[in-house]
Every structure is written in C-alpha cells, then in structure tokens.
Amino acid sequence: MASPSSFKQELLKKWVLGLQSCCSMAKDMGISERKKAIKLSADLAMASARDGRTCWSRAVIANASKQNESKILVQKILGSECERLVKASSIGFSSCNKRFTSKRILRRSCSSLRRIRRSAPKRVQASSIAKRMVKKRTQLLKGLVPGGESMDEFSLIEETLDYIISLRAQIDVMRCLADASERLKSQ
C-alpha cells in the first residue's frame, strides 16, 4: 500500500473480485440478501486491503471466516494470503473472545453490585460522573469498532483513527461504483 489512492485501488480490486464471486455463487437473491453480500464483500475488501495489519481488519476477517456462507468469499477476496491472514486473525481474535466473555461476567457482577450500591443514598462527585461518562462512551465505541471489545483504551483510539480513514476510503469507492452503475443503467 503505497498511498491513499493505491489503497483505494486495492480496495476496489478486491471488492470487485468479491462481487464477482458473490454473483457466481448465487444467482437470484432478494434485495436484502444482495445488500448483505455487497456490504460483506466491501467490508472484507476493506479489511484485506488494510492487509490485516490492524486489529479491526483482523477482527473483520475473523468474523467473516467464522460463518460458513462467507468463508468462500473470504478465501476469494483474500486470495493467496488467505491462509496466513485467517490464521493470524483467528488466533488473535479467539483470545480476544475469551477475554471478552470473562469481561462480560465481570461486568455483570459489577452491575449487580452497582444496583445494590445505588439503593443507598450516596453523594456523587463530579469527577466520578465524568469518569463514568467517558467509560460509557468508550464501551459504545468498542462496540462500534470491530474487535474493539478486546482493546485497551490507547489501542482503541488508534484503531478508531485507522478505521475512520478506511471507512472514508470505502465510502468513496462505493460511491464511485454506485454512481457508475447508475449512469450505466440510465444510458
């Protein structure tokens, strides 16, 4: 990946590859299925264009390769690097998953504790409120960024940066294609 433009090129290439394989796999689909396939292929293309270097892209690949119907798509899009990437991402992500479940348990216990505590009248300080607000939003952001559950705060912010840039590129490319296809139709 030499430049933003080449990143987009790669994304487009991979996406087109994915779309082709999609359309070769299943001929007649409903619009929602089609939409799903398009989105999945676009996401996968974005992740593979990012070359599995970042946490979120690995998480996307791992998520996709877990489902049976998208497995082939993953293999098509990733091509030769498929084995390596899927392996790396699944390793990274399975450990993340473990941590996530334990975290969930912890959170559950914490929330029960909090409920108990909330019943008791307690003076709440401003700093603690701010902290809680930040924590809540961090949790939200973790839910938004793929694979974010396993990240700490610092890497979460970094990944968010990367993810936003890649999303922008993806949107640009998708827009290109959508406009082109629209124009082609109207012609």
């Binding site: 087109v16 779309l19 999609c22 359309c23 299943a26 001929k27 007649d28 689909m29 619009i31 929602s32 089609r34 939409k35 396939a37 398009i38 989105k39 676009a42 996401d43 939003r137 939200l140 952001l141 938004l144 960024v145 968010t160 993810y163 936003i164 999303l167 922008r168 993806q170 949107i171 998708m174 827009r175 294609l177 959508a178 296809s181 629209e182 139709k185």
Partner: peptide
C-alpha cells in the same frame, strides 16, 4: 467520534443498499 463512526457505517449500509437496488442481478 461515535457519531461520526456511526454515520460512516450507516453510509456504507446505505450505499450497499443502493447498489443492491440498482443492480438487480448483482452482475455489476
């Protein structure tokens, strides 16, 4: 940031929906 990421993701959704609507046969 959350809002922005959400909006970007929604845009992706929208665009894929649009593509799906424009191309009935996924044959682009």
């Amino acid at each position: 940031i959350i809002n922005y990421v959400q909006s970007l993701q929604r845009q992706v959704e929208f665009l894929s929906m649009k593509l799906a609507a424009v191309n009935p046969s996924l044959d682009f």
